[in-house]
Design a protein around this nucleic acid. Structure first.
Length: 496
RNA sequence: GGGGCCAUCGUCUAGUGGUUAGGACACUAGGUUUUCAUCCUAGCAACAGGGGUUCGAUUCCCCUUGGCCCUACCA
């Protein structure tokens, strides 16, 4: 039975890089009919953040990535190796650290921070790799006991074997490190908490994780973990190190260069489908010439394969995210409204109601029609809906030059003629629909023997007071006959 | 300094021992019975460099260069 795990440390939010890792772990498990575990790696007491774990779980759920084992909202655990929160398992790690010391694969280190700092400084100065010098490695038993009795604080270090450590990474192939180049890692800190390296290996083993899928930043510490599995005599899981997500300058994706928390994207109005779809394609694609790019989580569960994951890092490109969001928003919208006009109005309203002004909300009839004319813009960015439709409620102040257009050959005189003629024609209109308005204005174009733009532009400008707006027929229709005539009169005054 | 990973358009990428090196985003131009947007069409744009192996390398090997990651009692 294949089993993967996502093991974030609760720093306050879910990082988009973490989301991608979680997604691949989830997809790999689903694809192989295995299980997916969430485990909270909170062994660093100094970095404790209130509510971070709850937040992480909330975001995971929002994304739709359900886990088979892990911390649940009601704090109960499934399986037989919970809790899935490491800070609640400290005794366990202590036991395994002791076992390692008995086997001679770990040792107590009493060196002070000061000594360590000095040592590293000297090593760096001599252009040597800063590494622990194993001063405490072969301390005689009597001396260890003496220090222990004196209550001297200590850490437990892993004794890395000086040999070649090889492993096969599912994404990178054969990788090898020599033990001599690897530092004796601290496994248990002086406060008794384990470090990532110990807790991670112990838990992965106890939880029967078969595939360790994690970020590339862990590649250099994998030999330490392998040495640990070997020291315990445990079966070594498969490893897959994912390429990093990058800033535009190709450095590891960081807070400084934009939003990094999934929550921030949620708050900005990005859909979960879009975020997941986008993130899935950062470092992976279905391959074999597939040109489709829009896939749901369910689709991906079928399609995913770890072999198609890239080796090189991928720049986190917001423009492409926006595009995915646009595709998904439109797709979902069309699916939901199902060609039903009433549903369409309702849905548009729901999408942007939280961003509308009070004045706009009061006139519901006008509002619904208005929203309809800026459908695409709402779908692209619901936040801006209010600004796009405000001219329907109150004609903005504009300069008379707005009624003119050099390229379309509309000067003030032409604008005046066009508007006056149109007004007369519209006034006589009995049925007020987009069709009849269009018909009426088109007749004016023919009558005046001018181009479409020479009539349509000044009218549209007069009705909207804006340089950019929806089309002239729909505006007139939404505004209604009376207001349309009013606005045309207002424009005529400006031209005289 | 040490160790490791990586390298196709600006970005995400497909692809192969012989291809006009394909797609998407972005960008540019034109069209969509007025403008912005949408939509459609077209265009621009890449195999890091040098050696091999080979009839033939973007593809396989080596070197160089470049980028990145790790090098904590953080994960």
């Amino acid at each position: 039975m294949i089993k993967t795990r996502f093991a974030p440390s609760p720093t306050g939010y879910l990082h988009v890089g973490g989301l991608r890792t979680a997604l691949y772990c989830y997809l790999f498990a689903k694809k192989n009919k295995g299980k997916f575990v969430l485990r909270i790696e909170d062994t660093d007491q100094e970095r404790f953040v209130e509510g971070a774990t709850e937040n992480l779980i909330k975001t995971m759920k929002w994304c739709g990535m359900d886990y088979d084992e892990g911390p649940h909202a009601d704090a109960s655990e499934t399986g037989d190796c919970g809790p899935y929160i490491q800070s609640k398992r400290t005794d366990l790690y202590k036991k395994y650290a002791d076992e390692l010391m008995e086997k001679g694969r770990a040792y107590r280190c009493f060196c002070s921070k000061e000594r360590l700092d000095e040592m590293r400084e000297a090593q760096t100065k001599n252009k040597q790799a800063p590494m622990y010098d194993r001063k405490c490695c072969d301390l005689p038993e009597s001396e260890i006991q003496k220090k222990l009795d004196a209550g001297k604080p200590f850490v437990i270090r892993q004794k890395i074997p000086y040999e070649l450590i090889k492993f096969k990474d599912l994404i990178r192939g054969n990788v090898q490190f020599h033990g001599k180049t690897i530092d004796d890692q601290v496994l248990v800190k002086s406060d008794g908490f384990p470090t990532y390296h110990l807790a991670n290996v112990v838990d992965d083993h106890l939880m029967k994780i078969t595939h360790v899928i994690r970020g590339e930043e862990w590649l250099p510490s994998t030999p330490k973990h392998i040495a640990l599995y070997q020291a315990f005599g445990w079966e070594i899981p498969e490893f897959a190190h994912l390429p990093l997500l990058l800033n535009p300058d190709k450095t590891k994706l960081s807070k400084r260069q934009g939003h990094v928390a999934v929550e921030e994207y949620i708050n900005e109005g990005y859909l979960r489908e879009a975020i997941l779809n986008f993130v899935a394609f950062l470092g992976w694609n279905p391959g074999s010439g597939e040109e489709k790019e829009i896939f749901s989580l369910e689709d991906l569960e079928e399609l995913f394969s770890i072999e198609k994951v890239h080796k090189a890092g991928a720049v986190f490109n917001l423009e492409k995210l926006d595009w995915f969001n646009w595709q998904w928003r439109r797709k979902k919208f069309e699916d939901e409204v199902d060609n039903d006009q009433e549903k369409r109005h309702q849905k548009l309203y729901e999408l942007c109601k939280q961003h509308l002004t009070e004045g706009q909300m009061q006139n519901e009839e006008l509002l619904k029609k208005a929203l309809f004319t800026v459908q695409e813009k709402i779908l692209q960015n619901p936040k801006e809906a209010s600004a796009h439709i405000d001219f329907y409620f109150k004609l903005p102040h504009y300069e008379k030059e707005l009624l003119t257009h050099e390229k379309m050959k509309v000067d003030l005189n032409q604008a005046k003629v066009s508007i006056e003629e149109s007004k007369k024609s519209l006034e006589n209109l009995e049925k007020w629909t987009e069709e009849t308005i269009k018909e009426s204005l088109t007749q004016i174009v023919e009558k005046l023997e001018v181009k479409n733009g020479q009539v349509f532009w000044p009218i549209r400008a007069a009705l909207s007071g804006l340089q950019f707006s929806p089309g002239v027929f729909e505006i007139a229709f939404v505004l209604g006959k009376e207001e349309t005539i009013n606005r045309l009169n207002h424009a005529i005054k400006k031209t005289t």
